[in-house]
Simulated assay, not measured.
Amino acid sequence: MTEIFGDFIDEFTPEQDSLELTFSPSSQPIQQRWRNNRLSAYFMADYFSNFLPVAEEDTNRDKRVKQSRGAVSYIANELLENAMKFHDNQSSYKVKFGLHFLETSDVTAVILTTNIVNREMADRFKIFIKELLSSDPNELYIQQIEKSAESEDGSSGLGLLTMINDYEAKIGWKFEAVPDKIDAMAVTTVVQIAV
């Protein structure tokens, strides 16, 4: 069974440029992966900034590139860290990390991750997503800060709320059954930001 929440995009135009990476989260302890996650996020942001349609003579060029690079690297890092942190290490599946482009009135970066989680974690995440989609993001942010101070499970949702509140991101999720693992779900998170 497949469930979709929020502003999920499932297909991208094949003629648009994209970048996709895969990671084996169980190949190293999570603490050693944090540095690689950050480097991968910066790489995505640098890659993306090369496609911004900003003329060399534009006086705001450097500022726009810097802001776009900062937004993409923050979101990419948050998504990749979450995908790695919550990935089911008993699974042989790899974490997928990608960047796609949408050309609307602005250039839109679409950053996505896919990871495998156990069904219990998937159910808890769906509850949070439903709350996120039905709440005021600013109020929920304050509530989550208070909850995270009391909780030790590392699942505060503050990164997702920061994406919405600070970067006006649109976020969507897809939950799919994993064919050979009855107790697991593939979760794809897609974040869109106009730059």
Rank of each mutant, 00 (worst) to 15 (best):
V107R: 13
P29M: 09
A83K: 01
Y167R: 09
S49A: 07
E131C: 03
E56V: 12
L132H: 01
I75V: 15
Y167F: 15
E168S: 08
I171M: 02
E81G: 03
F86P: 04
T113D: 05
S134A: 15
G157W: 05
K181V: 08
T189S: 02
A45L: 02
E11T: 11
A83L: 00
N138W: 10
L140N: 10
S151M: 10
K170I: 09
I142V: 12
K147E: 09
I30E: 06
P25T: 12
E103Y: 14
T162H: 09
E150Y: 05
F51T: 02
G6M: 14
F97H: 02
D106L: 12
I193K: 04
D136K: 10
K170N: 14
R61V: 04
R35S: 14
L132T: 05
E57I: 07
F86I: 03
D153F: 03
L160Y: 15
K63V: 09
S27N: 09
R124N: 12
H87P: 13
G154Y: 10
S134K: 13
E11V: 08
L133V: 06
F8Y: 14
P14D: 15
A184S: 15
V187C: 06
E11F: 07
L132I: 01
T59G: 04
S18I: 01
R119E: 15
Y47G: 00
I116G: 05
F128S: 07
Y74S: 08
K85P: 07
V187I: 15
H100Q: 11
F12L: 14
A149V: 12
E139G: 04
M1H: 03
W173R: 02
Y47V: 06
D88W: 05
H100A: 11
V195S: 08
A45H: 03
S27K: 12
F8M: 04
K94M: 07
P14A: 14
M44W: 01
I182C: 03
I164S: 04
Q144F: 08
Y141L: 11
T59Y: 07
R33Y: 07
Y42M: 05
Y167P: 00
E78Y: 01
S156K: 06
Q16A: 11
S40A: 15
T13C: 05
I171L: 11
N82I: 02
V117T: 03
N165Q: 04
S68A: 15
G172M: 11
K94I: 01
F8W: 07
A169S: 09
L99Y: 00
A186S: 09
P179T: 10
T162R: 09
T22K: 07
L102C: 01
I164L: 10
T108F: 05
D136G: 03
N89T: 14
M84G: 02
E131H: 05
Q67A: 13
K130M: 13
Q28S: 12
T113Y: 00
T13I: 08
K94W: 05
F125T: 13
E81L: 04
R33M: 11
F5R: 05
N165T: 11
N138V: 11
N138S: 12
D106A: 08
P14Q: 12
G6V: 11
L21H: 08
S68G: 15
N50R: 12
N115Q: 06
L102T: 06
